[in-house]
Nucleic acid binder design. Structure first.
Length: 152
DNA sequence: GCCAACGTTGGC
DNA sequence: GCCAACGTTGGC
């Protein structure tokens, strides 16, 4: 079992959007960064726990919890010229981009704000606040996950 | 909207 | 394979 933090811009897709899907399952498409892709392809496994994080918005932080219900498979939006995630250099023989499916578990009563997370000395080493923090798929270690979940 | 950080592209 | 130019991310 591993732990992750998936970023999303709530204007585009929020925790509420995820919660409002009838079966609660959504494919996490549109990841266009090789390191994040490698995580999705090779490391993210069934049953892994995922913090949902809102970025580029008023209340930046962790907003809820989801679980991986399907491991890495081809992200179809890379082949769709109408999609903003279209990648003309990707081919069906050698698709570049992957995605996973996640299932909504719960929305936290209150957003665990980035500024609160930054103020926690117990998890000062968390990837979210260090170099490489721009990755949209970030690993979270077990201690960090347990600590953060205890604050929600 | 600004800007620092950092990823990608492409010429050489 | 280097590196400058350019694009994107994301907090503020």
């Amino acid at each position: 079992m591993q732990y992750w933090l998936f970023k999303t811009e709530p204007d585009a897709f929020s925790i509420d959007d995820l919660a409002n899907i009838p079966d609660g399952i959504e494919h996490w498409d549109g990841i266009r960064n090789y390191q994040a892709r490698n995580y999705l392809r090779d490391v993210v496994k069934l049953g892994d726990q995922v913090f949902i994080y809102h970025s580029s918005c008023k209340y930046v932080g962790i907003v809820g919890l989801a679980e991986v219900v399907k491991e890495g498979y081809v992200d179809h939006t890379q082949f769709d010229p109408e999609s903003k995630y279209y990648d003309p250099k990707s081919t069906k023989d050698k698709p570049r981009w992957m995605m996973v499916d996640i299932h909504f578990k719960r929305k936290f009563v209150k957003t665990l704000l980035l500024k609160e997370i930054k103020a926690m000395p117990e998890i000062s080493e968390i990837g979210l606040v260090k170099k490489g923090h721009r990755l949209s798929i970030l690993p979270v270690n077990q201690n960090e996950f347990a600590w953060l979940l205890g604050k929600c």
